[in-house]
């Protein structure tokens, strides 16, 4: 989205520059003195706006519809929360022959797993704040971890501790996540062991 916005903003800058440059060049007579007498808006457009013809109205309606659609599409894209779609809940089934009891099904909520790993990370001494999100397919979930870490901590220590938390998650869920950890260094005020 950032690249798309950057492209659009660049395009907007180019359009502004082109319109302004053309207006200035024509107004100053750089392209011939005849152009300096021209009006910025042709009189025909003003007359059309005052007394629109049927074709003019159809054109206006179509342009309006197009502007409305483009505006809504862009607005929807801009207001959407970035990121991958969240992982669905995990479903485990067991036949009656396996369990020795009746047919069973266990559902593990993705939110519960996220909460578990967040709590696990939050309890680490070097971590000031933790956020975890499970995304992508439930067979091979993507685990996105955002950590606020005390700046005085050795990364190697944190990696080992986070690795243990991820291992606990793997044992609980039976899924090996593809993990990305983003660290934000902060000068923590609480004592760190």
């Amino acid at each position: 989205m950032a690249v798309f916005n950057r492209l659009l903003a660049t395009l907007l800058g180019l359009v502004l520059l082109a319109v302004g440059g053309t207006g200035l060049a024509l107004g100053l007579g750089a392209l011939g003195s005849g152009f300096t007498q021209l009006a910025p808006v042709p009189a025909a457009i003003e007359q059309l706006a005052s007394a629109p013809s049927q074709n003019g109205l159809i054109g206006l309606a179509l342009a309006g519809l197009l502007a409305l659609l483009v505006g809504l599409v862009v607005l929807r894209a801009e207001l959407r929360v970035p990121g991958q779609p969240r992982m669905a809940d995990l479903h485990y089934s067991q036949s009656s022959a396996e369990s020795g009891f009746g047919h069973g099904r266990t559902v593990v909520r993705a939110g519960g797993l996220e909460h578990g790993i967040r709590q696990s990370l939050q309890s680490l001494p070097a971590v000031v704040r933790a956020h975890a999100q499970l995304a992508g397919p439930s067979a091979r979930p993507n685990l996105l971890i955002d950590l606020e870490m005390d700046a005085q901590t050795q990364l190697s220590t944190l990696k080992s501790e986070v690795g243990q938390a991820i291992e606990r998650f793997r044992l609980t869920s039976g899924k090996q996540p593809s993990t990305e950890v983003q660290i934000r260094l902060v000068n923590a005020r609480r004592p760190v062991n």
């Binding site: 309006g64 519809l65 409305l68 483009v70 505006g71 809504l72 862009v74 801009e78």
Partner: peptide, 10 residues
Amino acid sequence: LALLLVVAGL
């Protein structure tokens, strides 16, 4: 810009 487009379109 999108809001302007929506308003202008409406």
